Simulated scan of single mutants.
Amino acid sequence: MSEARARLDALPNLYPKLFPRGPLPWGFEVSDGWSELVAILCARIDSILCETQSARMQVVQVKEKFGALRFYYELKGADASISGVIREAVALAEAASTHICERCGCPGEHRTGGGWFVTLCAACSATDP
């Protein structure tokens, strides 16, 4: 198991407020290159949730879709300001993913390849079948 994958797999234990039911049923459906981005997002959301007692969150799915990060969650009991800050943090991470190679984490470019949208750096794109 890669260090990046181990980092992703540890997130449910590190952030029980985001993963109250434990690990995701299908795991994190992203390549290793986005592990740091997902970890930073989880840390940010956890710090936001520490500001309120009433909010409850459940991360439902974290995956790649159309070459970008998708972070699906359910949020209950949060006021409009907390909901907005979390929504903004997720949107920023999803937008950032279109500039980070999903395989290695280096700066990348959002492009189409073989009928699929991907975000890859030049080196990973050169090895793309």
Rank of each mutant, 00 (worst) to 15 (best):
F117V: 05
P20L: 08
S81G: 01
G113D: 03
N13Y: 03
T112H: 03
I40Q: 14
G22P: 06
G77P: 07
K17C: 06
S2D: 13
E102C: 04
R70F: 05
R21V: 02
S2N: 15
C101P: 06
E88S: 09
G105N: 05
E109S: 11
M57H: 00
L11W: 06
S31K: 12
Q53H: 07
L18W: 07
L69E: 11
I45L: 15
N13I: 01
G84V: 07
D9K: 13
W26L: 14
D128Q: 06
K63P: 05
A126P: 00
S83V: 00
S47F: 01
G113A: 14
L37Q: 06
R70Q: 09
H110R: 09
A91F: 08
E29A: 01
R21I: 00
G33L: 04
E102K: 02
T127W: 00
V85M: 05
A55F: 06
I86S: 01
R111W: 03
A39D: 12
A55R: 09
L8P: 03
D46H: 14
E88M: 02
A123L: 08
D79G: 07
R111A: 14
G108R: 11
T112K: 08
P12Q: 11
V85Q: 07
T98P: 03
A93V: 08
F117S: 13
G77M: 09
E3N: 09
Q58Y: 04
G114T: 01
A43K: 15
D46V: 12
R87D: 10
Y72D: 01
N13C: 02
W34C: 13
Y73P: 05
D32M: 12
D9F: 04
Y15P: 10
D46P: 13
V59N: 14
C50D: 15
A95D: 12
E29M: 01
A122Y: 00
L92N: 08
G67H: 01
A6V: 10
Q61S: 13
E94F: 06
G27C: 02
A39E: 11
R44C: 13
